[in-house]
Amino acid sequence: MKSVLLCLLALSTACDGGPYPRIGAPNDPLGALSGDVVTALRPAGSDGLDILVIGRIDEESGEGPFRRVTMVGNATETVAGSWSLSGEEVELQLDVRWTRPDESDLPPTQTGGTQVEEIDEQSSHTLTYESGLLEFDGEPYQPMPDMMAAITPGDREAALDAFAVYALTLEVGYGRVLGFGGPGMTQYFGNPTSFVGLVAGEQVVSLDKPLSPVNRFDYLAFQELVGFEVDGRQVTETNVSGSEGFMWGTVDFQWMPPGDEQVEVLDAHGWSGSVFYGNSDGSDAVRIDGGDPASGTYGVTLQGRTFQMSVDELDWQRVRDLIDLQPSDTGDP
């Protein structure tokens, strides 16, 4: 209903809320993964990131899950499907595509937000995984554990890096929340909706109070990047146009190298922390102005040490600097 009000406010032109959904089209066509999963990343272009999520091939079906996220600036494209071996090559079957366009220059009523479409695309590729690097079509990608090894908790720089991986997780997740960034978010008014993680868990999106919107993101063991899990609630309260308001809530995160999920291993190889956005009464909160976080600080805790990070420091693109695409000496397959 609020999208209706928002669009009526525009008066002059119709809203471009993207295409009509088909009747009964699922909100989240992504299925949950099981078994071994590899997440590997590489920088793309001057400010982008290319992320592969590849699951082990099932012996019965001969297929494994395949997901790919391409981020360029504020735009995100996510595809999901399956992969199989065909001789020396890998055959991809893509079934779903989510598109979150870069609409940062558009007025709110002209934005479409994240959209999803069913696709049926087949293609052949090369895929190798050796010497600590995964190569897809000849391009090197760094697996998550090797990239995360660059983060050694203890100082502010490490907290900033962990903060960037956390921000990347949320950003990748927004890329599949239908309507995110546009009037279509009003479909969650009184209608909490769950979206499964690329790897595991889920995020639940809900919206209350149409005239002073309260937008909640509940993260439940949510993993977009294998081994990096977020848990908690982040709430944004704004005025009706979404231009001014504040954020509150606390979201925990932890890094567990895949295969090391036992709690006792966490101290040895993994780490944990949290991001504090502010209190529900608006105190110590990150303030929204012009639709974006504009002032205040995030309280980022990593392994028990808390650092105050300004809103400018929450930047997933910092992850690009963590990626080292040189083959490792160990040559671990």
Binding site: V4, G17, P21, I23, N27, V116, G184, N191
Partner: peptide, 16 residues
């Protein structure tokens, strides 16, 4: 004319 079809599991159809 306004049309609203909504549920948590499926994509909402809103039409004004």
């Amino acid at each position: 004319r306004y049309l609203d079809l909504n549920a948590p599991e499926v994509q909402a159809i809103e039409h004004l």
